[in-house]
């Protein structure tokens, strides 16, 4: 049986070639001799090359979350939708800045039309009593600001569109 997962936009293919605990598992075409066992509580233990990893898995309709050694992975079940730059601009998406968290826009630091350098503060999102500055990923001009001060935003909500400077 085979399953596809999408992690950070990249497709991964997992195929099990045998049943039971001792899987011959093929990940992205590479055959791995991994042992999967039930662990403590609802965790599972995966042994690969004599290293034991404890993992926890949660399966949702659209994604599967995995926690291994404290790291959190979110695997999508469908290819991710490419975020089209809202406002119908030139089709560039590299300058679209999305919210890294759920929160409230505490402050807009710049206006549409302003020039920015990479690393400049664009706005501040506030949640959990902390102010979190969102910075420009590249140098350019602010094409559009999608949110107003005080608005609630979700993780992934488009915040600001930057038109990349020609010379960078």
């Amino acid at each position: 049986m085979n399953r596809r997962f999408y992690y950070q936009g990249v497709e991964h293919d997992v195929t099990a070639l045998s049943k039971g605990d001792h899987h011959q598992i093929q990940v992205d075409g590479t055959l791995l001799a991994a042992t999967v066992q039930k662990g403590e509580g609802s965790s599972i233990q995966i042994t690969l090359n004599d290293v034991v990893y404890t993992a926890l898995v949660s399966v949702e309709a659209e994604h599967t979350d995995v926690c291994v050694a404290g790291h959190h992975f979110r695997f999508l079940h469908q290819p991710p939708q490419v975020l089209s730059a809202a406002g119908g601009s030139a089709g560039r998406t590299d300058g679209l800045v999305v919210s890294p968290m759920t929160g409230r826009i505490a402050k807009l630091s710049l206006c549409e039309g302003d020039s920015v350098q990479k690393g400049d503060e664009l706005l501040i999102v506030e949640a959990m009593k902390m102010e979190f500055p969102v910075t420009a990923p590249l140098a350019g001009k602010i094409l559009k600001i999608h949110q107003a001060q005080g608005e609630q935003v979700e993780m992934g909500t488009p915040l600001v569109e930057i038109q990349q400077a020609q010379n960078s």
Binding site: R3, T30, I46, A55, V57, V66, F75
Partner: peptide, 19 residues
């Protein structure tokens, strides 16, 4: 930058959970 554990491990776990 987080030093991630092998992605294969997470993928095996995801596969195990999904099936």
């Amino acid at each position: 930058e987080p030093r991630l554990p092998p992605l294969e491990i997470a993928l095996i776990a995801a596969y195990h959970g999904a099936t």
